[in-house]
């Protein structure tokens, strides 16, 4: 067991280093393009630049929660109940919550500049807040007492229910009357009304945030693996110590 721990004591690999380097490169481009090269918006002016962080972080949060649900379903369905699925689900949810928090913070800043308010309980904002709270709850469920299998089972069920909120959040601006604007890129008409460089920078942001997401999830789920190994190792050591204690007496 200690050999396994030693072999896996680092969470980085050549692949994660490449992903990390790519993430930095694309992020630098997004910062330069978003802050300097892209023009001001005709109505919003400079505040449009918040979009290059706000929209990609929202999309990546959705993606993270979908991955969490898929990994959770895989854990429930698979006969072996591989804990790798559970660790991936947990890591993805943690990173997703972080991106959702970024979405809410940047959205509030944009709202103050455009609407004149940091927050309004309109359909999009309300459902997004609800989604965020749900996944904070999911993370709390993962920390309840119990074995690793109990943790995996409980959280998998929560994850598969929570993911159903995502369509509600995304289509809230279509289903109900919202202060938040409708979708620009994923609008039902397919007619994207956005300046070309703005659109390119937005997609660059999506690529950069995706790379950051992958990098963080890979490291986090390996950290979780190390914690699980250390816990098991601690249990083995305790049993061995008890056996030794018994044989001496």
């Amino acid at each position: 067991m200690s050999q396994v721990l030693q072999r896996t004591s680092a969470t980085g690999t050549r692949a994660t280093k490449v992903i990390g380097a790519l993430a930095i490169l694309v992020m630098v481009w997004v910062v330069v393009s978003g802050l300097i090269l892209t023009p001001q918006d005709v109505v919003q002016g400079e505040s449009v630049r918040i979009m290059y962080v706000h929209v990609p972080s929202a999309w990546i949060a959705y993606l993270a929660f979908i991955f969490t649900a898929v990994a959770s379903a895989s854990w429930l369905i698979s006969k072996k109940h591989s804990m790798g699925f559970d660790r991936f689900a947990g890591a993805s949810a943690e990173v997703g919550v972080m991106f959702m928090a970024i979405t809410l913070i940047t959205g509030s800043l944009w709202g103050r500049l455009t609407w004149g308010e940091f927050w309004q309980w309109d359909p999009r904002l309300t459902t997004t807040a609800f989604l965020f709270v749900t996944y904070v709850g999911y993370l709390a469920v993962r920390r309840l007492e119990g074995s690793a299998e109990q943790r995996a089972r409980r959280s998998a069920v929560v994850a598969m229910l929570a993911v159903l909120e995502i369509p509600l959040v995304h289509f809230s601006v279509v289903l109900w009357r919202s202060l938040h604007q409708g979708a620009t890129v994923l609008n039902p008409n397919g007619d994207v009304k956005m300046d070309d460089l703005m659109l390119f920078t937005l997609f660059s942001g999506v690529v950069a945030f995706t790379l950051v997401f992958v990098w963080l999830v890979l490291h986090r789920q390996r950290t979780m693996l190390l914690v699980d190994i250390a816990n098991r190792q601690g249990l083995d050591a305790a049993i061995a110590a008890r056996k030794t204690e018994g044989s001496v007496r």
């Binding site: 005709v42 109505v43 609407w115 604007q181 300046d195």
Partner: peptide, 25 residues
């Protein structure tokens, strides 16, 4: 209380167009 409801359109700020047609929106 007045809240501005922004549309889902984003366009480059263009000084010439603004001068010829009034406000940006």
């Amino acid at each position: 209380r007045i809240e501005v409801k922004h549309s889902n359109e984003y366009a480059e700020k263009n000084a010439d167009r603004l001068n010829s047609s009034g406000s940006a929106a």
